[in-house]
Design a protein around this nucleic acid. Sequence first.
DNA 1: AGCTAGTATGTAATCGATTACAAATTGCAG
DNA 2: CTGCAATTTGTAATCGATTACATACTAGCT
Lengths: 346, 346
Amino acid sequence: MERKTPNIQDIARLAGVSTATVSRAISTPSVVSEATREAVFDAVRRTGYQINLTARNLRRRRTGAIVVMVPDLGNPFFSRILAGIEHVAAPAGFSVLIVDTKQPHAEEGQLFTYLHNTRADGLISLDGSLPRALLERLDGSNGLPPIVFACEWMAGGLFSKVVIDNAAGAAMAVRHLHNLGHRRIGHVRGPQGNVLTSARLQGTRAALKELGLQIVPEWFFDGDFSLQSGVAAARAWLALQERPTAVFCASDQMACGFISELSMEGYSVPRDVSVVGFDDIDIARRFIPPLTTIHQPRNDIGAEAAKLLIERIGTGMVAAPAVHEVLPVELVARQSSGPAAPLVPY
Amino acid sequence: MERKTPNIQDIARLAGVSTATVSRAISTPSVVSEATREAVFDAVRRTGYQINLTARNLRRRRTGAIVVMVPDLGNPFFSRILAGIEHVAAPAGFSVLIVDTKQPHAEEGQLFTYLHNTRADGLISLDGSLPRALLERLDGSNGLPPIVFACEWMAGGLFSKVVIDNAAGAAMAVRHLHNLGHRRIGHVRGPQGNVLTSARLQGTRAALKELGLQIVPEWFFDGDFSLQSGVAAARAWLALQERPTAVFCASDQMACGFISELSMEGYSVPRDVSVVGFDDIDIARRFIPPLTTIHQPRNDIGAEAAKLLIERIGTGMVAAPAVHEVLPVELVARQSSGPAAPLVPY
DNA sequence: AGCTAGTATGTAATCGATTACAAATTGCAG
DNA sequence: CTGCAATTTGTAATCGATTACATACTAGCT
């Protein structure tokens, strides 16, 4: 048994060549002669040699890793996006490093070490609320790694991003409800200050206005994308004197929480109120009733973001213009939305 | 603007000391004099110097990263476990690297490069079906990194693991149904060959036997933990002449799929059949009806696994005996399970 | 003053690869 | 047989930190 893992020197000795040749045989086989190549590969096989990536990366001035910043790892919404990222990054030779930005240890100082280019060659952020100060120092300008946002983004358009048309999605949801005959439509918002919240809110407002429907402030409920906040919205809905007959929730999780709470209180969806979600998470089609929602291609978002980032890393990340990719959304009509009840209760 | 990021030499020059002193000022501040320390820190501040982790890691012969192997990143069951791992690993100075073992690129050869110690200092696997051949070469013996399994594990007890008592959990579920008066109890299995599948199946069988209930083969449905397989099990249940009055599903996802499909066919839970799940995923408490299930402390599982691994990495990973940690599960009774109907229909 | 112990710093080797440059070898045309 | 280009290989510098060892200096004691 070896005392330690073999290194390139050991291979060189065994194959009777220099380390330079070993390196070449491994990285650019075409430039070494048939015979030497075989000798080297044979030595590699015999020893089980594995290249030391740390050393290679040091010399090549790269890390072979990309960091993904996730607002909340516990939220299943992100799982498929991560899968999409991993699906593209791994074959391209990049490891995927994940950071939960909402963890207490992820304060500005800590985050910066992740962004720094000795840790990763690039960064994908699913969190649009990273401290500005942090990012201004980044994105290629100072030799620091390129950044791509996905799902969420930062105002200003400075950074590349892969997103969906949130306003359009929201408008689709509202129009769908309108088509079903609903004229009193409410909305459960995402968390304050979130870009998705404002985009979906704005889309909702615009569609309501366009359809000539009134915008009733009491019908706009606070939320934060979580199940629990959907529950809270349902309680608020129950407390209303005049209730909207349909509610568009800015996330499926909130829609589930909303329906669940109403159901516990003896109300039924869509009989008593129609509900539309946003995201099309896995459970949506199997919720009871199955959720009408705006489908987001989560896998593709992750994959596209990774593709974009890796491209940037490859091109020496010179201050290329930011790319803004917008992926399509579609309405998936299921059973949580139905025709509006006649104006006068039967 | 600098042409490139500053390195330790630049700091040394600026502070008027040697690189050795800079290194010491940063890693072990107590051994340098007050004055020098200040000079160094000042230079660091002025330049925005960030240590090059690749170089440090090369010299220290470590990577500062741990790899987590996830059977299916798209499955939300794993999200909280990842969060638990990240929560412990990040403050301890380890980055978390994730690999989806079910991706096509994750073949044996590829996987091995992840396991190799130039990539990571240790490995947490949530996948109990890694190729044996792969693992036999690992776990400290050859200077390769230590491994901890979490949730799933590999038969043989060679590796450390953090798990729950799956058989006990299954037995709790069965006993709960028995207490409610059910005498005809079925089970939806996990995927073939999975350790969780067999443990939960075995626990189910044992409890049935202990309670003097019959074990009817037709009441044991195939599944693979997914929503869709729960749907399939529901169809199988519907097709039966003699149906069990209660079904224990080996995962919440299957339980949701099962209930959902029955509901679409006009059946209602728990009126027509009681259902118990396993895992207590986030949506469980908000499903309709809220799911009775076996609660797994997913966050803790991840955190414990990370703690264990990091400990091992710290102690130079000499062939320490494998540690097998078993975390407690508990039954959470909600509304998907109810009293058995009287033997003769009303 | 002379000696010891302790503190602070510098010199240079080292981690394990990559690669610019030089040198050696081979092939072939003239 | 000579000369030149093309191919293959080796030498040694390099990436950016850490650390063993050596050295310089200070303080305290006899």
